[in-house]
Amino acid sequence: MTDLLQLLLSGVSTGACYALAALGFTLLWQASGTINFALGEMVMLPAFMMLFFLNVASLPLAVAFLLTLVASLLVLGGMFKLLVVDPLIRHGVIPLVIATLGLSIGFKNLTRVAYSAQVFTFPSIFPDRLIDIFGLRVTVAEIGTAVLACGVALGVQFFLNRTLTGRAMQAVAQNRDAARVLGINANRMVMYAFLVNAALAALTALLVTPVYLAKFDMGDTLGTKAFYAAIIGGFNNSRGALLGGVLVGVLENLVGAYISPSYKEGVALLLFLLVIVFMPQGLLGKPEERRV
């Protein structure tokens, strides 16, 4: 019983991290129709930026994170939109898929040769302590990560639904022309989505790297999982990302422990395929209307 609870809790904790990355993915999709295959690398890159500030420049973690956040907003937010997405978006889905794939290869190998191909440990923002809750021994990091990640995901949700800017962003996502008529600056709203994605990527890096360790190809797994999470939850819905992420995280833990570690990835994948074929809008998404 305690085993099961422990597995569930650590599943929620990793799942919440997938959710953060997935949230960025759904935001970009909604705002601009971009399928971002460089999703994982956009978490890996901030992780290495922080490492650089920590190890080479010897700055404290808080300062390193802030500097990384700024760099992420500029490069992964602004430059990504202006230099890659804007020129390609009117040519349909495929050229952008290819371009983000190119970015993924580029970022990964740039990190490998320019920094290092080795594995690095990464300091956690949480104290390294075990606590005991009704006989359940959990680390502060697990609880902290789950709470923080869920909090941020809900915060983004709140921002989208309850603030004027957030609602304007949703209006643009749903119907760009109608939003323009209402006097909303569509381009600026799309830019906000890219900036939020970049900020989420930096935050995800801060939370996952202590667990996953920093390596140039750490984005591969993370990107795949976040991708599953986004689609299972419904990638035209930002609440879906949280559900999808937690579901993937928990399922992986359970299947890995009770069924077979070699098909650990298989179950999330199976769920993903079932969702795609039988309810392509995802568990929480709304069906997209067919245009005639």
Binding site: L103, G106, F107, N109, A114
Partner: peptide, 9 residues
Amino acid sequence: LAVFGFMIV
């Protein structure tokens, strides 16, 4: 490989 990736973009 890094050059290759960015060349694709």
